[in-house]
Design a protein around this nucleic acid. Structure first.
Length: 722
RNA sequence: GCGCGGUUAGCUCAGUUGGUAGAGCAACCCGUUUACACCGGGAAGGUCGGGGGUUCGAGUCCCUCACCGCGCACCA
């Protein structure tokens, strides 16, 4: 017997070596498996594209969880003989990465404008490259059986070609348009962001009631009110029944008298405040909609740096935060302040990445029209293309209650603003040329011929390139073999927090550009929390537990088990160091039981195993039944239950019952051949079944078994026929 | 306001067509028998958040209430 087995299992000394063994074998690449006769050429495919981690630093426990669950699926599929591809990559993450680098430069007292676009981008690329290397290294440490030969990056050349092609196709179909619309402007990041990138924070503030001619109006934002010349009330409000829609009145306002127009609309909540409000279409989504509805004038009050424009008169040039109190003071002097509520809870939209307070603005931006009927897609809109496959069950979301959340989101979806005023990202493939008083526009994969063309300065929302991920990684727009073989992918596994950001966008892009679904199943895991229930969020990077520390302490297999057992889809996981320690014991148990079996079965002719006695036959059947059961559960993505069953069977049936029983039988030399035969067969089978969950220790033991013709455990056949 | 989830043993959580409540950890008792003390054996522990209903039978289905968490919209 191998000397190694005589000592306790040492994950630290084993894991890197095992990963190298796997990597060197080339079996992470399905083509190699086919070449070696492990996978049949015509076998069913199983593919997952790795949700690409952002190149903003280290992987956290959330990534570890995603890698563990996907690795289990992939290893299971590979052992079943499927053509199995797990495709890795990283995400340039546009705003997230750019703002991270800006923060780093800030410490050196460097601003991005001092560097200029080109030089700044060099800095970002360098940072991204370093993050990328860290991430790849971490993925390997975690045992992920990813096909590194196919690695992709959302901002590399191939993906850039996919992005440009997608943009042009949508542009030509009239789905992408440029227009003046109200958008979420982040004055801090100096860019537009999408609705999904805003986070609402509750803050205690003041709520003012002002006299506005014969009315009293409420507002939390006096600084936007300069240009308010429309006063709105509900058509059925009896208090204001004498006022007519369209009626004009003159009111004394901040900087003197203005002419106001009465608007009656049902959007007004009669119960709220006085049931009257004035509107600021340039700086409010709702007011904008109302203004569009009645074709009202819109006027900009605040510039893109958060300062007041000349319309504010004496306040022009002031920052809105400074101006607020002064405006109220002035109104007070004019006797126009009715009351001030000091305990008003206001929800303030902030930018996810920079924390800047969002100022809605009307701006010229690029949008994707989600409602336009598309001739080439049976006159369906993008919204419909997103809804359909989920509604019809072609895409299954696990757990399925997220389907309702998904539908709800799509039904409320507005046109997607895809342009960003940042430098890091895919440049919009549109060029402009001014000739005389005419302006030409060109959209294409390359810059147009001729002089005088300048490319749009903006870049694309990072989720635009992410949306293409399931097929841009497989070579699209080229009609590659990979694309034919592995798309639609089998499963998309990710956190439920990016259901809208990403999953919805992937369905949109794939349905529209390929006319097929991007994946058949969506498996949503929960958020990883600390033992005291705190969220280990991305932005808290440094504070979160480093999965690599845990692995160094207890081993990878222990972390994997702790992340799988008791963790069901969609539910948050409290990661408890105690549990991880407990599962570390399991690896050792497997190790020790293997040692015992090897000791007892030395000299056993494994090619001609002795017959089992009645008792052992019963045990054999029991294990077979278990395997049938868990294979079904594996197919249903119920990994938690499978891991628990295997754990339990190995420890409390194989070790506690069968091994204990065998000791007696061998000692008394009663059917000892049968028992040895059973020990051997059981161990072989259990190592295989456990491999997707605890790949390192099982592979290490497998390598120590005295079987000459064996391959790596990772490509052995899954031990059950369904 | 609309919607979703959760509430099961001290703790963390499983429990898939409704059929006598489960695991891990912790705590308790016994045991150091040569695979393993990173061990074995044993016992204990729950009116499955409250109330109501359907059913021969409900943790599981329906209604309702409470508390916790989350999402979306609105907040003029």
């Amino acid at each position: 017997m191998h000397e190694k087995l005589k000592k306790p299992y040492n994950p630290k000394e084993t894991e890197d070596k095992i990963y190298k063994l796997w990597e060197d074998s080339g079996f992470f690449n399905p083509d190699v498996c086919i070449e070696n006769g492990i996978t049949k050429e015509n076998a069913e495919h199983f593919s997952i594209v790795l949700p690409p981690p952002n190149v903003t630093g280290n992987l956290h426990t959330g990534h570890a969880l995603m890698l563990v669950i996907q690795d289990i699926m992939i290893r299971y599929a590979r052992m079943q003989g499927k053509k199995t591809l797990w495709l890795p990559g990283t995400d340039h993450a546009a705003i997230a990465t750019q703002s991270k680098v800006e923060k780093i430069l800030e410490k050196e007292k460097i601003r991005k404008n001092d560097l200029g676009r080109e030089e700044f981008l060099k800095r970002v690329d360098k940072f991204a490259k370093e993050s990328h290397d860290t991430i790849v290294n971490q993925c390997k440490k975690m045992g992920a059986s990813l096909d590194w030969s196919r690695e992709a990056f959302t901002l590399d050349e191939e993906r850039n070609m996919a992005v440009k092609t997608a943009f042009k196709t949508m542009y030509d179909d009239g789905l992408i348009y440029r227009g003046h619309r109200i958008v979420n402007w982040d004055p801090k990041g100096q860019t537009v962001i999408s609705d999904d990138e805003t986070i609402y924070e509750e803050k205690k503030g003041k709520f003012y009631t002002f006299k506005y001619g014969p009315f009293e109006i409420g507002t939390a934002r006096p600084e936007t009110k300069f240009g308010d010349k429309y006063v709105v009330m509900h058509p059925k409000d009896p208090r204001y029944k004498d006022w007519k829609h369209g009626q004009k009145i003159t009111v004394e306002w901040i900087n003197g008298p203005i002419e106001a127009t009465i608007i009656k609309d049902e959007m007004i909540d009669m119960e709220f405040g006085t049931g009257v409000m004035t509107i600021t279409p340039w700086h409010s989504h709702e007011d904008f909609q109302l203004a569009e509805k009645y074709k009202l004038d819109k006027e900009q009050i605040i510039d893109k740096y958060g300062k007041l424009l000349p319309v504010a008169g004496e306040f022009a040039g002031m920052k809105i935060t400074d101006a607020r109190e002064k405006i109220v003071e002035k109104l007070q002097k004019k006797g126009l302040v009715v009351s001030i509520d000091e305990n008003y809870i206001n929800r303030i939209a902030t930018a996810e990445r920079t924390g800047g307070i969002i100022e809605p603005q009307i701006m010229l931006q690029w949008f994707i029209d989600v409602n336009k009927k598309i001739p080439s897609r049976n006159s369906k809109s993008l919204k419909e293309l997103m809804l359909e496959p989920v509604r019809e069950g072609k895409i299954k979301i696990i757990p399925n209650h997220f389907e309702k959340v998904y539908f709800n989101w799509i039904e409320n979806l507005r046109d997607w603003c895809i342009s960003r005023q940042i430098w890091y990202g895919h440049r919009i493939p549109v060029w402009y040329k001014a000739t005389g008083n005419k302006s030409e526009i060109y959209c294409g994969l390359e810059s147009p011929n001729g002089d005088g063309w300048t490319q749009d300065e903006d870049t694309l929302d990072t989720w635009f390139s992410s949306g293409l991920w399931t097929f841009s990684t497989l070579g699209w727009p080229d009609k590659t073999n990979d694309l034919k073989t592995y798309h639609p992918t089998s499963v998309l596994e990710t956190g439920h927090d990016i259901l809208f950001f990403w999953i919805a966008r992937m369905i949109l892009m794939s349905q529209y550009l390929l006319g097929e679904i991007p994946f058949k199943n969506v498996y949503l895991h929960g958020m990883v929390r600390t033992a005291d229930g705190k969220k280990m969020s991305k932005s808290l990077g440094e504070k979160a537990i480093d999965p690599l520390d845990i692995i160094a302490k207890y081993g990878n297999d222990a972390l994997r088990m702790a992340m799988v057992v008791g963790n069901t889809p969609g539910n948050d996981l409290k990661l408890n160091e105690n549990d991880i320690r407990g599962y570390g014991k399991f690896s050792n148990k497997v190790w020790n039981a293997s040692r015992f079996v090897l000791e007892q079965t030395q000299g056993l002719d494994i090619n001609n195993l002795p017959k089992l006695d009645e008792e052992d036959l019963k045990s054999e059947k029991e294990l077979n039944d278990l395997l049938t059961e868990i294979s079904k559960e594996m197919d249903e993505f119920r990994f938690s239950i499978v891991a628990e069953k295997l754990y339990h069977y190995f420890w409390h049936t194989f070790a506690d019952v069968i091994i204990e029983r065998s000791k007696k039988k061998i000692l008394e030399n009663k059917n000892s051949d049968s028992t040895k035969s059973l020990l051997h067969a059981h161990l072989m089978t259990l190592l295989k079944a456990l491999h997707p969950f605890i790949p390192f220790v099982t592979e290490e033991i497998w390598g120590l078994l005295p079987n000459k013709n064996k391959r790596l455990l990772m490509v052995e056949k899954w031990p059950a026929n369904k």
